[in-house]
Nucleic acid binder design. Sequence first.
RNA 1: GGCGGCGUACCCAAGUGGCUAAGGGAGAGGUCUGCAAAACCUUUAUGCAGCGGUUCAAAUCCGCUCGCCGCCUCCA
Length: 488
Amino acid sequence: MMRVYNTLQGKKEELVPLSTGKIGMYACGVTVYDLCHIGHARSAIVFDVIRRYLAFKGFEVKYIRNFTDIDDKIINRAKQEGISWDAVAGKYTEEYYRDMDRLGVERADIEPKATEHIPEIIDIVKGLVDQGYAYAVDGDVYFEVRKFADYGKLSKRDVEDMLAGARVEVDERKRNPMDFALWKASKEGEPSWDSPWGPGRPGWHIECTAMSIKHLGESFDIHGGGADLIFPHHENELAQSEAYTGKPFVKYWIHNGFITIDKEKMSKSLGNFFTIREILDKFDPEVVRFFLLSTHYRSPIEFSDESLREAEASLDRYYTTITRIEDFFKEGKDQPKPSAEEKSLEETLAAFMGKFKEAMDDDFNTAMALGHIFDLIREANRFLDTKPSGPKAKDLIVKTRDLLRRAGSILNIFNKLPDVWNDALMQTKKIPYTKADILEKIRQRQEARQKKDWSAADTVRKELEAQGIILEDKKDGTTWKVRINRQG
RNA sequence: GGCGGCGUACCCAAGUGGCUAAGGGAGAGGUCUGCAAAACCUUUAUGCAGCGGUUCAAAUCCGCUCGCCGCCUCCA
């Protein structure tokens, strides 16, 4: 049984799809007017993992993630850059893909754009006007909040309370200050589409109603986004959708928490944000992904270099273990050697997937799932320390590796070879040596070691270490790797 | 002002009624090593912001207090 926290009910609920075995899921994407920051990455990754896990659980998932490609911010940006609004949208859509691809965020099944759904949007607005939920004024169309009795049920707000403490500026043409635009008349020179109310463009919330209904139907299972979308975006979306169809819109509303800097929400307006791009200049995408999954999706995450370094160290622990596993296969000893550790690993392996699923079933608890992964890693290392051999040992190690990969594939981490991980570190840590340089140093040191000239050998070691390269002497030679700087 | 959330070890972070309070990082000691690294072992919260209450039993439920944050305006 899976449980998910539903914002609408304010508690965890059992996940029961509207149609057995199938899940329709819609997540709010981005407005394409600028580069994405790490907060956008969190949301994208959270819903990417949710989608992957649901698919792993055997659901047939249809996942929709939209692009808002027309809005005030895009129009303003176009003026700034001196290009057309659709060129802005096109450019930042590409940039979005560049970042998300690097972060391992899979494409949604359908990625609709607002401007490709103008007829559907107009139909819905018209329907709302006809049913008396909306009214037109000077080419604008507003949704009349008072007409929808359940308004406020998602964000747990009361219309009267909001009016009392309203900070919104009053627009005399609205019947109620909380009324929101479904359709906006366009000003001279602005992009526009013909409509029964004159040339204009869609309001922000209506596109999601149009696109989700078109691609998922009038009622669907999951709607997600950042917690800052609960009000007003999702509240309005819910109101206009249910008013229009007369049916429940979404069964489970899922919202991810924010990323904070110095405890404050990261946001464009505060200017305290980091773009995905600048972070990926210093850390491998997998590190960012791991970092974001190491905290439960609804909790805030404090962003810092230190946290990313810790995530990097954790990942390195995984890859180091995989290297040990590879070394074990190379040795290929086949004398059976039963041990208490063998038994213990066997038990851990048998229980692992159950624990992993239990964690993920409980509102996608990736932090706990990672905890189980590291339990298995420790158990595997303990076993490898016994210098195991024999077919049974080999079988257990194969299983260990496969289970780690399987769990990793659901989170879309652990998908590199250790060498590739090391290469990535060479890059992000900006190591000033080539691999050939390092091998040459190792050769020199090896000569010194053969002569038992320990001080010369240690000089080489220290020289490399100063540049972030660690040497490891093993039975069949010396290997090297990039050192993880675990703290400051 | 209205609504909501959070406060768990040196740091990050799971756990939301009942076995010894996960996991990662850091520190200390040890095993291993020519020296290292990695790994492993031991160790670091008789206690989960504080105070009261409910209960056979609470970090977990209730109340109050303190501190921090979010939404109420575009925002992932």
